[in-house]
Design a protein around this nucleic acid. Structure first.
Lengths: 344, 344
DNA sequence: TTGTACGCGTTATCAT
DNA sequence: ATGATAACGCGTACAA
């Protein structure tokens, strides 16, 4: 009833009256075994239902064929989709994906990385937490010689690869789209600039305004958390302070949704009175009765690319050199109902 | 620049001029070491920044402190949330979570399980794919003595624990709610009965009708895939065939959404003309302008409970006996706009 | 209390 | 072409 005894190369060697070393060689298709014994070994291996012990191999070789993925929360659509991409790209190569959550907490992040390193992972993919400022725990990964790949939320560390999307470009396109639709007084509800992504989205917004000779109005600049409630509050404060605007470019779909609710509650029509564009292409955005225009980030693709970068890195490490690769993906603007000014 | 050399118990033993065995004992807080050497070892271990090699331990003990989670797709909200629950419950105990996707494909499922077993996982959590009929590959897990826990989508296999929600109850409550709101002609758009969950939801619907002396009308019974498009098609076919109904209980939120779109396109008002209830409490349901009434499944909790069952199982195995535990969670009806018949 | 020796399953090195 | 042996890092039965 308990554990089936596993068959080892010794079982095969005994049965065939040869040494375990020969069996190992045959199994690894070495060219220093006679074809005859090779076939014999392979045959009996199949008969005995031999499975290589991954643990012993890992102890010997130092490679576990496990990679770690560290994200704030795995059930956030974006992260879950990136992980999906990583898994799908790596699974065929024999890798397993271990997931860790940081809950946006640096200490937790550091701890997760530590235990991950201790399990002799072959690589780490990470999207840093909002509270991550010191990067000592991340540099340690690099210093241990473990391939490390940032995705989406990165930190600037030399010798570390990253896959991100061009947040600047996404924001620039979104803002330009609003301008082209005839909106001229565009508010930007962004996020904390400690996260590069929010800084870049802000920059893209500013650049688009300038490129179209529109003034930058500080009153129209807000920084909030990425929640529906924060969106509601943001609009409330704009309205309370009598700040006039005819469009909102939000760095978050949730904030965009909250904004729209509050706007409608105050009698504003969308997109007639106010145009709204979000960011992330959260699944809910396309299911709204008035689907939300938003910037898509191709998260599954991001995961796939990150995995590919990892695989390259692995082979580079073997060749004893390190390449720092920075991939920047292009975002995609999903033009939907909330930003199309009909008949204006 | 390459791999920092790891420090082992031998390094400590050499430095202290004692045997590695003594170091091991000290590190494991054995009572067969003098307090003095124990402290000494612990101190130098810290100095040398010693980390136990998890691989060597795993090879020796057979325990890896890794568990596998097998789901159709990790980026589906429900599964991602269950995984989150599992991770949060197990991480403090030192376990890592390995994720595998089956893409709703049995062959893939079997393969994933196989490679998972080969990495000497300490347990497996699984929600079976839609196409899973034969369960040989799953029985193998049990037969190898590896703790196995089904969640949500289970199969009836003796000796295997499971954590599910009471789909019958959820459907019963949802249907009863519609009846209490005054709807009498309730259609049920369900899913393939090969998946227990859909069968149970169907049964709950039927039971609720009978309990309230309402007739069961076969014309109102449909089985479709869980997509928006399928919901649209389902309503189209009902309308085309002139089948009258004043409410829909859908086994899927996506189908419910599609249904509502098609109904509105045909001039029906929700909930005035037709009441709608979905299933799963997908995130988008509460963000709709008219939030959808739906049955919530507490996925994070499901994951936590599954993890707890696993932990119990682990200790049971040590005691050399097996317990088959079946946990059934109660669903929660989220009563929202689409089923509240105002002023009728 | 401490040390010696072995085994977990593999692969690599050195002989043969 | 094949075999014997060491080594990966650890825990532990046995001996001292």
């Amino acid at each position: 009833m308990r554990q089936k005894e596993k068959v080892t190369i010794y079982d095969i060697s005994k049965k065939l009256n040869i040494s375990a070393a020969t069996v190992s060689r045959a199994l690894n298709d070495s060219d220093r075994v006679s074809l005859k014994t090779k076939e014999l070994v392979l045959k009996t291996a199949k008969e005995l239902n031999y499975q290589q012990n991954a643990l012993a191999l890992a102890l010997k070789s130092g490679r576990t064929f496990n990679v770690g993925v560290v994200v704030p929360y795995i059930n956030h659509t974006f992260f879950a989709s990136v992980i999906r991409g990583i898994e799908e790209e790596l699974e065929p190569k024999g890798y397993h994906v271990i997931i860790c959550q940081t809950h946006e907490n640096v200490e937790s992040e550091a701890k997760q990385i530590k235990t991950l390193l201790n399990t002799h992972i072959d690589g780490i993919f990470i999207s840093v937490s909002k509270t991550t400022e010191s990067v000592k725990h991340i540099e340690e990964v690099r210093d241990e010689g473990v391939p490390l790949i940032f995705f989406d939320r990165k930190k600037d560390i030399s010798g570390v690869s990253s896959v991100t999307i061009n947040d600047f470009e996404g924001a620039y396109e979104a803002t330009t789209h609003l301008i082209q639709q005839g909106y001229t007084n565009i508010a930007h509800i962004g996020g904390d600039h400690k996260l590069e992504i929010y800084k870049h989205r802000y920059d893209g917004y500013i650049a688009a305004l300038k490129a179209h000779n529109l003034p930058v109005n500080d009153d129209l600049l807000l920084q909030v958390n990425s929640t529906v409630e924060a969106g509601i509050e943001a609009v409330k404060s704009l309205l309370k302070n009598n700040i006039s605007f005819d469009a909102i470019f939000s760095a978050s779909d949730y904030v965009a949704l909250g904004s729209m609710r509050e706007l409608r509650a105050n009698g504003f029509k969308i997109p007639e009175d106010v145009g709204v564009v979000g960011f992330s292409n959260e699944p809910f955005t396309k299911y709204l009765e008035r689907p939300l225009t938003t910037v898509g980030q191709t998260p599954v693709l991001m995961g796939q690319i990150a995995a590919q970068v990892f695989l390259e890195q692995i082979t580079d490490v073997k060749k004893n050199f390190r390449v720092e690769k920075k991939v920047v993906l292009s975002p995609e603007l999903y033009t939907r109902d909330t930003s199309i000014k009909k008949g204006s």
